[in-house]
Design a protein around this nucleic acid. Sequence first.
DNA 1: GCAAAAGTGTTGAGACTACACCCATGT
DNA 2: ACATGGGTGTAGTCTCAACACTTTTGC
Lengths: 250, 250
Amino acid sequence: MTQICYFCSMDLQEFLEEGDKLFLPNLSIDLVIIGFEEGHLKCLLLKMGNKWLLPGGYIRRDQSVDEAARTILKDRTNLEDPHLQFLSVFGDSERRPGLGSEWKDFILNSGVKWDEGYWVNDRFVSLTYYALVDINKTHPTVHNFDEAYGWFHFDALPDIWMDHDQILKKARNRLKEDINRELITHNLLPDKFTMPELHKLHQAILEEKLDRSRFQKKMLASGLFERLPKLQKDTPGRNPYLYRLKKQGV
Amino acid sequence: MTQICYFCSMDLQEFLEEGDKLFLPNLSIDLVIIGFEEGHLKCLLLKMGNKWLLPGGYIRRDQSVDEAARTILKDRTNLEDPHLQFLSVFGDSERRPGLGSEWKDFILNSGVKWDEGYWVNDRFVSLTYYALVDINKTHPTVHNFDEAYGWFHFDALPDIWMDHDQILKKARNRLKEDINRELITHNLLPDKFTMPELHKLHQAILEEKLDRSRFQKKMLASGLFERLPKLQKDTPGRNPYLYRLKKQGV
DNA sequence: GCAAAAGTGTTGAGACTACACCCATGT
DNA sequence: ACATGGGTGTAGTCTCAACACTTTTGC
């Protein structure tokens, strides 16, 4: 049975046997793609057998590591330029995708023969990135290496493959650290948003209550946002203003 | 001619031909080793031909990436546990040690035949770390891949190999960023030091004047240091106290 | 005594905290 | 009218920058 592998023109068998001619061996990229919905931070995971894993891929020999990460993100989400940043290296010596049964089962279920010696069964050092996306603009695609996708609350994760739970944990903490250094959170919201929405987002990221008044003043004082006409809504209470990111001056 | 390669029992020829059985291919580690002397930040560089490069090495298949970095640092400096932290990934697609003439010349000068196809001539992704060391406790060793070592001012660097100048630049900036988050700077000083010394160090790192009074109060308020008897010296002016890092409470 | 170096104090400006208060809207 | 949610104001506290002052030493 021939199966086209999403990131190249090879079929699966060819990919397993000599994918390392096209890709760097022993190196993979894994992405933690983070969105915000219904007041909760969520991450995008893919299903392989009875486990869930991070979207990932390999580095083409003609691509830089950053380009590879961006390509994988684009392939998975159809997003061109969200906030994408390097997270960390996961480099344990016993880090082998083939150790558990999920990967092997997938290969066998694909009607391809299994070989311990495939380059993809060797040790892999993972270069991880995290991306902040507008969850409504993201349209994940499912390829041959996975059966389904899902957005999961960070505090209600399913059964995770390999060490991908550690990667998720690291991303969650990094986000907490980065939020005060750079105001990057707007990437998680639509182009236009209200201060109460941004306020809820910050509280969700930091996992603590923030004073409304102070928050609003701090955000406005940053000078990053411009106020638009008020939002029309049909819930009780005053109508909030809409904001959007100011265009950068030259 | 047989030459022993420092990180394994292979000779050079064997290392070039099948070193990738022992090490991960396409992956290298480079270290920016930073010290402080005579009021200036310095970094350790090695000489290869007419260029200077960072101490580096490869990742043994039975070692984690972090272990490999620590091993290389130990081999180069005889230091066991200085501050060692991940810096960044350098992953350009055209990042090949063999592109310039220095590497080829070194191989040929070693009396070994040259082959474009050696694994070490392929593209390499570099995982970089930076280490803060007490320059007086550091006794660099020179191995077969380099002729000499030297400590260089960051603002008076020699001719640098490949993209190692970019790595140095990144480390220099990272240090500036990290100094205010964590108080890691004592790693650059001897066990016992004075506040004026620490003050000069911070000014050197940040490349700006810091108010003496404020600096001293901030350091003492951190509670990290304990005061020792005064230093005896024979220069004009009052004798400063010595300080050392407080032992961590349980 | 005086200059140089080290250590400490003081004062004002600005940021942060915790509220209280005012505004707009739906019921 | 009033409950609900959004926006703004204010007084107290805390931190921090700038500079002045004091102490210790060598000459």
